[in-house]
């Protein structure tokens, strides 16, 4: 049952990827990603790193 629910949430999430990152984040229950993290947008990361002169740390999971 739990697996079914998890799969259902995941499948719902997959349909949202191209549309709304906040919706995707909610669907994946990615609640711990907050504060300064940029969510699923590497190009925004490049822009911020260029502006701030900081290195980038890109996590895939």
């Amino acid at each position: 049952m739990k697996i079914g629910l998890a799969l259902g949430s995941f499948l719902a999430a997959t349909a949202l990827v191209g549309q709304d990152k906040e919706a995707l984040k909610t669907a994946l229950k990615d609640a711990e990603v907050s504060g300064p993290w940029i969510y699923d947008d590497v190009n925004a990361g490049y822009a911020e790193a260029k502006k701030s002169a900081k290195p980038m740390l890109v996590v895939f999971r």
Binding site: Y39, V42, S52, L57
Partner: peptide, 22 residues
């Protein structure tokens, strides 16, 4: 971690494979 610009990527659609090879 505050010394970095941190990005979290959760899926690979559109990923630049000339760069992100892992």
């Amino acid at each position: 971690m505050e010394q970095f610009v941190c990005v979290r990527v959760v899926q690979a659609w559109g990923m630049d494979l000339s760069l992100f090879q892992f």
